[in-house]
């Protein structure tokens, strides 16, 4: 009996020592979780999540202060990836908060007065121009965050949907009525 106790105590001590050692030896600097979450987020910096940018949202998720379904531009795939990363359940978007079709901002250069307000709003510096000069969206850099739309005093910015091109065209998911349930699989959370 006593010897068994000693053995147990010895094992606990040993394992404790190993754990303690590895905690020091393999200590991870910083919080890599934030980086990992940030890497999943689409970097539109749109603030639709209620945080000023993707990084702050990532930090909030890491702290457990924010839900994973607050990022419409990331789409359902984004939620799924976050769920997988954090080991939590998939959570669909709330009512009416789903992702929108990809779009880029477009400045009507006839109406633009060159006020630079949109330049200040753009989180990724995708608007070229200077004071009193016409502004133009650099479409390839635009993340479609819509943050420039509201500040414009003359409402010359509109969001333009991206047309499908041969380069971005995707093969559709094979749908055949027979063996598949009629509901698209996208709506079913992955278990």
């Amino acid at each position: 009996m006593i010897s068994a106790l000693w053995v147990m105590v010895g094992i606990s001590l040993l394992l404790g020592a190993v754990l303690g050692y590895s905690a020091i030896k393999f200590k991870v600097e910083g919080n890599p979780l934030v980086e990992k979450i940030d890497a999943v987020l689409p970097q539109t910096q749109c603030g639709q999540c209620g945080f000023p940018g993707c990084k702050p949202y990532a930090e909030a998720i890491a702290k457990g202060e924010a839900d994973i379904n607050k990022c419409p531009p990331g789409g359902e795939d984004g939620i799924r990836k976050l769920a997988e990363l954090l080991g939590v359940d998939y959570k669909p978007f709330g009512e009416g908060a789903g992702p929108k079709a990809k779009a880029v901002a477009f400045i009507d250069e006839q109406t633009c007065i060159g006020c630079t307000l949109c330049l200040q709003a753009c989180p990724v510096d995708a608007i070229a121009g200077a004071a009193k000069q016409m502004h133009t969206i650099i479409a390839s850099e635009c993340t479609g965050c819509e943050l420039c739309v509201a500040p414009c005093p003359v409402d010359c910015i509109s969001m333009v949907g991206l047309p499908e091109s041969i380069q971005t065209w995707k093969w559709p998911y094979p749908v055949y009525a027979l063996a598949q349930p009629q509901t698209p699989t996208r709506e079913m959370p992955k278990s």
Partner: peptide
């Protein structure tokens, strides 16, 4: 695209 956006955002 996200990578580029991140860089541009950080730069900004």
């Amino acid at each position: 695209a996200a990578e580029i956006a991140r860089e541009r955002h950080e730069f900004r």
